[in-house]
Design a protein around this nucleic acid. Structure first.
Lengths: 150, 150
DNA sequence: GTTATTGCAAAATCTTTGCAGGGTG
DNA sequence: CACCCTGCAAAGATTTTGCAATAAC
């Protein structure tokens, strides 16, 4: 089990969140968080659960769903639904604010970050009264290579 | 049955699409398109199907799903998955490029439009060389009511 | 007439729920 | 030692599929 500053940070954030809410700090919850922060890129519940079963964690799918709910609440993960019927998630600690450009021809994904997204969020927060926790922004189009081909 | 230029246009687009693909022009398919273009805002399959049953259209849920698939292919509707387990759709013919705020507690969806999204798109276009065709932007959080409850 | 499409119901998939037992605070 | 959380399995909800009957071309 590799230790990293990132993992220590998210464990701490999760601990604080659980304490603030009066929720219990069960080892299952930390197992899920640990496992998620070992995954690069996106994952779905099925693969996460399967991975944990393989690693001999004793955990049920119900608890995985339960924990994911908590991690969403404290913004340690992001939920995506790309049009399939299964939800996908990704960790969102530092780097959770990047957005994506997707090439509809070859599928290439490029990440970018623009501070103006935060400005839009602030404006929308004021005008609608929502409390925004996170966002998802995708630009779909053609990457340079596919643009040339066409 | 009200006639509108918009409906005539989308019927024509759909007809052309079906012909080009060699698909059959069944009355069920046009019934679904007609019904969808009578709906303001978002809808899900359940409500669309229920509405059509009430209006005494003879149609099955399987055919509704089938037709929605075709309408997605020819860009006459857009599919959204706001975090609930049911997909939602909306017509997309000259639908404007509005974006969405989604309440993660009660599922409420509010539309907004901010010109800065286009500015980000232009900036990203320049810096990455992508040719952007369309985008999706969701802000997730708590609506005013749920914010108070919490 | 051919054959894609429909309707029905059953199946498949993903997620939630109820409840008894176990672990946290 | 109270009661929140877990695991299990069953239930729910949405979407897909298989197949005979129907209708478009």
């Amino acid at each position: 089990m590799k230790h990293s500053r990132e993992k220590d940070s998210v464990m701490h954030i999760f601990t604080s969140y659980l304490e603030r809410k009066g929720y219990r700090k069960t080892h299952e919850r930390f197992d899920v968080l640990h496992e998620i922060y070992s995954i690069r890129g996106h994952f779905d519940v099925e693969s996460l659960y399967g991975k944990m079963k393989t690693k001999k964690y004793a955990i049920s799918i119900a608890t995985v769903y339960n924990t994911i709910e908590l991690l969403l609440e404290c913004n340690l993960i992001k939920k995506h639904q790309f049009g399939e019927n299964t939800s996908r998630y990704e960790k969102s600690f530092r780097g959770g604010n990047h957005d994506h450009l997707i090439c509809t021809a070859c599928g290439e994904v490029v990440e970018f970050w623009d501070p103006a997204v935060k400005e839009i969020q602030d404006a929308v927060t004021v005008s609608t009264g929502f409390e925004v926790n996170y966002h998802v922004l995708y630009f779909y189009g053609l990457c340079p290579k596919c643009k040339v081909k066409k």
